[in-house]
Computed example of a mutant assay.
Amino acid sequence: MARPRSGKTPSSPPPEPAAPGVPDARERLIAASSRVLAERGYDATTVKEVARVAGVNQGLVHYYFGSKDALLLAVTREHSQQYAEELRQLREETPLEQLADTSFAWGESHLRESPAQFRLRYELFALGLRNPELTSAVAELQAQGDMEVARTVALYRGGDAAKPEPTDMHYAVIIKACFDALALQALLDPKFDAAPIYALLKRMVLSSVDGPGSAKPARRGTKGQARRGKTPARRRRVPRPPR
């Protein structure tokens, strides 16, 4: 092969621009990890297999994430961001009087349609307890999810202008804890029917949260009793003495 007259070797051709819609290496690794982790579980998943499925060099796993633990965190964070975006869209598009039913149905559908993603959440919870380097990141991920649910509760309770209050966050933690527990039991027992329990949970929550149309008319009483929030006591009928 003839060399150029200048005596220099020819430079490498410039890289071709990425085609539209083709994810980069980091995104391919997250997508591949989600698939491999869901199929094999955390312990059986190897960095080598993730890189093979992603079609990238194995060293890029360590370059972008540093460890398999951090890779699982990135996958779960990606799923959580998708859930948060779906919940925000649900709040924007759902009429207020339908928000409670739609929100509970949306949460229940995730278990039926994405059980593997719940399994990854539990794997991450276990890692957060074992690996101190991940503990704060896992706790932050939980807090972000709680806040999205709290915003939904606040919207149902007070309308568009309502901001989450401490009580809304308390409801959010309870709701998420119940959903996680029901999802875990459903994963462990394929015969477990969570539908009636979801329905009961919804009734319990809605019975204690004042939402649209839930205000009850006050009972009529005297002015003083109305100010004190009391109802008038019945008068006892005194029998007349015999004539």
Rank of each mutant, 00 (worst) to 15 (best):
Y63C: 03
Q144I: 01
A2Q: 07
G59F: 09
T222A: 09
R219H: 06
L127E: 05
A218D: 10
I197P: 07
R28L: 15
C178E: 01
D101R: 11
E16G: 14
R5P: 03
E133L: 11
P10W: 07
G7N: 05
G159V: 03
S6N: 14
L73G: 00
A162C: 05
S109H: 13
A186S: 15
A84K: 11
N57G: 15
R91D: 12
V47Y: 05
V153T: 08
A2R: 13
R40I: 04
V61D: 08
G229H: 03
Y64R: 06
Q117M: 10
P14L: 15
H79G: 04
T102D: 05
V36H: 06
D101I: 02
V47L: 08
R130M: 09
V75N: 04
T135R: 15
L200E: 14
A215P: 01
A25K: 14
P242F: 07
Q82T: 15
L99D: 11
P4H: 08
A154M: 06
Q81K: 15
E123Q: 15
R157D: 03
K230Y: 00
A161V: 11
R219I: 11
F125T: 09
S207H: 00
I175Q: 09
S103E: 05
L155A: 04
L201Q: 12
L134W: 06
T9S: 12
V173D: 03
G221E: 03
E133Y: 13
A195F: 03
L37N: 01
T9R: 10
A18S: 13
E140T: 12
W106Q: 06
L111C: 00
S80I: 02
V138I: 11
G21C: 07
A161P: 00
V36F: 04
K191Q: 14
S103R: 14
G107R: 11
A154S: 14
A70Q: 08
R5Y: 01
F104V: 03
E97A: 10
D210F: 00
S67L: 04
S208A: 11
S214K: 10
A161L: 12
R151Y: 04
K48L: 10
S109C: 07
D43N: 00
V149E: 11
L129H: 09
P13G: 09
Y42R: 04
S207I: 00
A54Q: 04
N57T: 10
